[in-house]
Write a protein that binds this DNA or RNA. Sequence first.
DNA 1: CTTTAACTGTCTATCGATAGATAGGCGACG
DNA 2: CGTCGCCTATCTATCGATAGACAGTTAAAG
Lengths: 190, 190
Amino acid sequence: MAKTKTDMREAVMTAAKATVQSHGYNALSFRELAKEVGIKSASVHYHFPTKGDLGAALARRYTEEGAAYLAELLATSNDASWCMDRYAAIFRAALANDNRMCLCGIMSAELDGLPAEVRAEVDRFAEMNVGWLTQILSRARPSTGEQDLQECAMAIFAAIEGAQLIARGCRNIGIYDRTIRAYRTTGLIP
Amino acid sequence: MAKTKTDMREAVMTAAKATVQSHGYNALSFRELAKEVGIKSASVHYHFPTKGDLGAALARRYTEEGAAYLAELLATSNDASWCMDRYAAIFRAALANDNRMCLCGIMSAELDGLPAEVRAEVDRFAEMNVGWLTQILSRARPSTGEQDLQECAMAIFAAIEGAQLIARGCRNIGIYDRTIRAYRTTGLIP
DNA sequence: CTTTAACTGTCTATCGATAGATAGGCGACG
DNA sequence: CGTCGCCTATCTATCGATAGACAGTTAAAG
């Protein structure tokens, strides 16, 4: 059974995702990527004509997979606190996995070097997260206005991304855990 | 009056700081840097033998200047709330200035490509901030234990860095403002 | 069937740009 | 004179991207 076009494309995207989460979009190299999946860089260009195409495809899939998982959480439990636990665990898992970061978090830092199509996907990821968090908050605080819910959701999203960023910077996952706990204690997170 | 060695060194560091805050450490180029300050790239190497030397000097100065400013705040007012306002304003100013980021925030995202001496400076910056925030918190909540104060200080630092990161990613400074306000409302920030 | 044509996925080879870094020279100044 | 600050010139490495060839597959035409 030979590799189909889709197989190779998947392999490239998987390797690229890991590289970006570890070293950022700028560190993504067609040559290195090709070496990892066992083809030549010219063949990577066959699947993704430009680096921007690859980056955008990566970010889009990342958002979609995240949205699917979060929807599953939402359908599994009505407990906002439990959902938030699982949510924070997603970002923790990236750190635990070789000190990786959220794809869109790391891309936000590299924003200036990003092609426009990649930036658009970064925005969509943030929107998706805030939307989900707003739903969670509306369960935990049903009497709160939509406006306030969204602001608080944005704050939670930013705070968790920040916790990941700083913990990564210090190469210390304990910082992430303690920070999330402090968010809970102060009431930022349900 | 010709330029002294110190003058040129200062000029290089100033330009480099702006570049890193805008585009990250990886985007820092000796050639571009030299062009900006009106010398040649070989001359930049005269002042900073390697890129790591430049990056570390940059981060060290950034931490020192920040510490000096924060000490000034601490000496100016006893009002924790006012100090926190000024603190949040520092990070806001970076965003307002061409969507720049905290030097150490952006370096945390690029951590893997950083020379060891630069990483060490990133750690020191975080420590310095947490130390200052702990002092502020001990004024606002004098009855709280040192352990809890430090955790909360770390949480505030991470949350503000995150707010800056996300607002930058969305190219929308309003997101920063609303997020900081939400931090206040929930009680994370005094 | 068989032949022919197109398509697919990968290859080799190469382009121009840019990176960090180094060797050695030149003029000013104390 | 000798050091200081900056220069020209150049090296090697790597980047994204492209052109052109080749083998394997598919499918239509005869």
